[in-house]
């Protein structure tokens, strides 16, 4: 249960950063774990890179070595889980 709550919190945090990284309101009303960056949010690769730099600041963990894997992830939930695993191992 607590893992689910944590994941929801991570997704919510990520949703806030996505809004910031996109500069405009995203084209969907709700950003959830299954929301896809490209197909649903229309994020450009540059928006994705900005998102990851914001995420790095927010989580206090270096993502530089994982950028290749991170930019391949399709959904908000996958990204939240990946970063959570890095933070846990930090």
């Amino acid at each position: 249960m607590s893992a689910i709550i944590d994941e929801n919190a991570d997704v919510e945090k990520l949703a806030g950063l996505i809004r910031l990284a996109m500069g405009d309101e995203p084209p969907v009303a709700v950003i959830a774990a299954q929301t896809r960056f490209t197909e649903d949010l229309g994020m450009q690769s540059i928006n994705r890179l900005m998102l990851l730099s914001l995420l790095e600041q927010e989580c206090g963990v270096s993502l530089e070595r994982h950028m290749t894997q991170l930019v391949e992830l399709q959904t908000v939930g996958d990204t939240a889980r990946f970063v959570a695993s890095l933070t846990a191992g930090h």
Binding site: I46, S53, L63, M67
Partner: peptide, 22 residues
């Protein structure tokens, strides 16, 4: 590499950069 451009700006503190408008 371009994937780390945003992190590197703050870390390297360049005096000039060249980049596309996006």
């Amino acid at each position: 590499r371009h994937t780390s451009v945003f992190q590197e700006l703050g870390a390297f503190k360049p005096s000039f950069i060249v980049a596309p408008p996006a």
